[in-house]
Structures are given as C-alpha cells and as structure tokens.
Design a protein around this nucleic acid. Structure first.
Ligand code: NAD
Ligand code: NAD
Lengths: 214, 214
DNA sequence: TGGGCTATGTTAAAAATTTCACATGATTAG
DNA sequence: CTAATCATGTGAAATTTTTAACATAGCCCA
C-alpha cells in the first residue's frame, strides 16, 4: 500500500484503527457496503473526517454507493502495515505478562509473541503458553535468531528503562510498554504507552466537570 | 480546583495525566523543584505546552524558579478530580477482569473496585480479591447501595453493549471498557476505550514507513 | 537592600487539523 | 439510453492546537 501523501497525522492513524474495529464487526454482521455517513456514526466521528483520512492513502469508495466493507478493511489494514505478521518479544513474565501471553487475540491480529524474557532465575526455563522463558541477557541473540521487530515491556516501572536498553541494544525499533513510566529511547525507536490510568483520569475529569456544573 | 477557562482540550487532559506520572517519579527521586523545560523534556513535549496546559487551571509556578514538584502534582491531580476516591464496578470476571481485580494499583490511585459482576451462574458467589462476584441483574441495586460512579467493562466484545446497558440503567456516568468494540451510550455518559491493538497498529504503521523509506 | 538572572504566565503568530461545500462520477430506475 | 439520485473525493474555510516571543515577577547574591 503506497502512501499517497507526505505526512499523515497521528490522529488519523488512531482513527484508522477504530475504523478497522468497526469494519470487522460489520463484516461479522454481514454488511456488504457502508457509506462514510454511517461508518462515521458508528465511530463517533465526522463523515468528512473519514473521507479525508482515507484520501491520504488512495481512493477506496464508489461514488453514489459507499465503501465495500471487506475491501475497505483490507485496504486500511494494508495501509497500516498490519496485513502481515509482526514478531514480538515480551519482557517481564509477571501477572500481566502471563495474561498477555495467554491472550489469543495477539496471534489473531498478526502480532506473534515468539519470545518471552525475564531476569528472575526462578522464572527462566518455565513454560508459559507454549513458550520457554529465556534470560533477558540472551535477548539480543534471540531477537536476531527469531527475526523479532517489536518489544512488549511488562516489567515493573523501575525496570522499564533497563528493559528498554536491552531491546534497543538488540536492534528493536518499536516498543509497546505497559509500565506506568516514560522511557528514553534513540530517535529511530518508536514507543507506544498503554496506561489505563490515563483513561481513568480523563473519565474522572469529565465526571467532575459535569458534577461541578450542577 | 476551580476551572479558570471554559473549554479544555482533550489533549491537554491526556498530557496532564502524563505530567502526573513523571512528577510522581520525580517525587520518588527526591527532586523538589523543576522547570517547565526539564519537565517538558521528560514528557517529550514542548515547554510552552506545559505552561499553557497549566494556565487553563491557574498559576502554579514561581517565576525565575520553576514548579515545586509535590505542590504541582497535588494541583494537577486536584484539577483532574483524582484527589478523591472513585468507586468502581467491574463487569465480566474473566481472565482480564481477575487480573485487574488483583492489581493493587487501582486502589493506590484512588479507583476502588467495590463491586464485581458476572452473568455466568458458575462465577456468581465466587470470591476474587476479597470481593464476592454478584449477578449482573443486581447491578442497579448494588450501584445505589455502594455509591458506584464508574463502570469497568471486561466482557467479551459481543456482550459489551449489554453490559453497557446495565451500567447506564444503573445510573453510571463514566465507563472504561477493555472490549475491542465501540459501544453506544446516551450523551451524558462518558466512555474511554482501552485497546492496545490501536497502539500496536500505530507502531506497525511507523515501522512500515521507515522500512519503506529505505 | 538592590540589581541581575531566570523561568513563569500570557499574548500573538504559526501550524495543524477538522469541517464545510460542492463538483464529479457511478449507480439505478424509468 | 437518459435523467435523477446519491455519496465520494477534494479544495477552501473555519477552527483548534501548538509554538514562539516577551514582559513580568520572584529569587539569589553581592
Ligand atoms: N497486573 C496488571 O493487571 C497490570 C495492569 C496494568 C499495568 N500493569 C503494569 O505492568 C507491569 C507488570 O505488572 P505485573 O503485575 O505483571 O508485575 P509482576 O511483578 O507480576 O511482573 C513483573 C515481571 O517483570 C520481571 N522483571 C523485572 N525486571 C526485569 C528486567 N529488567 N528484565 C526482564 N524482566 C524483568 C520480574 O521478574 C517479573 O516477572 C507493571 O509496570 C504494572 O504497573 C499491570
Ligand atoms: N485477556 C486479556 O489479556 C485481554 C487483554 C485485552 C483485552 N481483553 C478484552 O477483555 C475482554 C475480556 O477478556 P477475557 O480474556 O477476560 O475474556 P473471558 O472470556 O475470560 O471473560 C469474560 C467474562 O465476562 C463474563 N460475561 C459475559 N457476558 C457478560 C455480561 N453480559 N455481563 C456480565 N458478565 C459477562 C463471562 O462470564 C466471563 O467471565 C475481552 O473483550 C477481551 O477482548 C482481554
């Protein structure tokens, strides 16, 4: 999927992920065609926004009709680069790490966790979801061997920077971290933070606002 | 904490949550005072951005010096409405639900999960992390009894809308959902979506971009 | 105690993003 | 085959958000 335009807003990428989510539900429901207006309603955005977002990548609709759901879904996934398998390493096999290793949806969506790493000698060698837990020291070797491109950090926050160091050292260019702390990386490495307290804080703020109004 | 200005950008709220995260690390490290420049560096934002974000709520700094870390943290948390306890109900006591119920950080951050609900007769009555799992049918009654204001959805996606219905019916005004599907709510209800595939998609897109460039 | 320094708070400019409006082209019904 | 209809794709307008610039006010040292 060639990118038509130069810079694509970060917000557009976030929305494309939402469109995929909704489109896959529509596929399950058996909907063949959808207009930007209806899709927009389902995603809680403006219809023009959808058309503009898609225009960054090409023309996917049929004038006077709308979009073929399956086709559009495939096109967006291709644009996002998720029409392939991404091999991932998980660092920190604790409560959350184990839950993620057992979560089948990763594989379903093309993110294959092919390496599990921990620094706790008691955990090394243990098998979780069919994967042997390996010592973090061997990360670099394994990343090369398994062709890993994405790192997932599930260590405690005070260890997140160290885990990051290992991943960067191993040549990883993309990191998803669940540790509630900012991590420092070189310019060429992308980091995405998952922190649901940010969402809870946003909720609290909105709830406080409407309470104060009354 | 009185809001000085009328509308506050959503992006500002997201950043305030990041500032809190970084400030709490600084407190732990024993830093007393920080400038917007250094805080900005730690949060990977522009210094003006921080000052502008704070200006929506008041004046918290000392000219020529910077911000007292503890004081600023308290002020931001107050502005966000997280200087109090929020009572929460969790709906869907499966793998993820149990992990969250056992995650102590919720209580630490003022979000107390005081009710756990499921519709599976085999789960009802079971005890998880000191909470008895209650039938979803009794949600309304329990929400009133326990003064619950926030709902957390951890059901499978195809059940998320039903769970939403119960929560809205019970008078809940804020929902955090982990189910990878959009849910429909009345205007007065706020929803926050936690979906780390959105983050993985964003990573995949960025990684694909730089690969294509080479 | 006063002057130099420094980083805030704020106003103004710049940039980015969203929304509008409509010409265009495909579909479908007559 | 033609006309009416409809929803896309897009350029321009409006809005929002970010960044820059600077005057102001408090600290610190002489
Ligand atoms: N448990 C949850 O529900 C949950 C939810 C959201 C976020 N989180 C966050 O996820 C992270 C993990 O949480 P958890 O509950 O699984 O903690 P945990 O203590 O159960 O697991 C942490 C694991 O990381 C390993 N580890 C520590 N340092 C390491 C290093 N340098 N290299 C490799 N492995 C290392 C530990 O040995 C341990 O196995 C924390 O930052 C937490 O805040 C957890
Ligand atoms: N497991 C993970 O690591 C993980 C990670 C991210 C997101 N998720 C998402 O979180 C959700 C839950 O995942 P899970 O792995 O815990 O699934 P699960 O099947 O283990 O748990 C779902 C629970 O919801 C209950 N439930 C179903 N319908 C209900 C209803 N109407 N009212 C109340 N309870 C109901 C079920 O009885 C079950 O206990 C899913 O949407 C999943 O996609 C899971």
């Amino acid at each position: 999927m060639p990118v038509k335009s130069e810079h694509i807003p970060r917000a557009t990428i976030k929305r494309l992920a939402v469109y995929v989510q909704v489109l896959e539900n529509l596929i399950r429901e058996g909907t063949d065609v959808i207009s930007s207006e209806l899709l927009a309603k389902a995603c809680a955005v403006n219809p023009s926004q959808i058309r503009k977002d898609l225009a960054y990548f090409g023309e996917f609709g049929v004038r006077g009709l709308g979009y073929y759901v399956k086709e559009l879904n495939t096109s967006i996934k291709s644009a996002l680069g998720v029409d392939r398998v991404w091999r991932c390493a998980l660092v920190g096999v604790g409560n959350l790490g184990k839950a993620l290793l057992n979560h089948h949806e990763f594989k379903l969506r093309g993110f294959h966790i092919v390496g599990a790493f921990d620094c706790d000698p008691f955990k090394i060698g243990e098998e979780v979801s069919g994967l042997e837990v390996v010592c973090t020291r061997r990360l670099k070797e394994k990343v090369a061997e398994l062709g890993i491109e994405v790192g997932i950090i599930t260590t405690p926050p005070e260890r997140a920077q160290r885990a990051t160091g290992h991943l960067v050292e191993a040549g990883i260019k993309g990191i998803l971290t669940f540790a509630p702390t900012r991590i420092a990386v070189p310019d060429h490495v992308f980091v995405e933070y998952v922190d649901f307290f940010h969402h809870l804080y946003a909720l609290a703020f909105n709830l406080t606002l409407i309470e104060d109004e009354q």
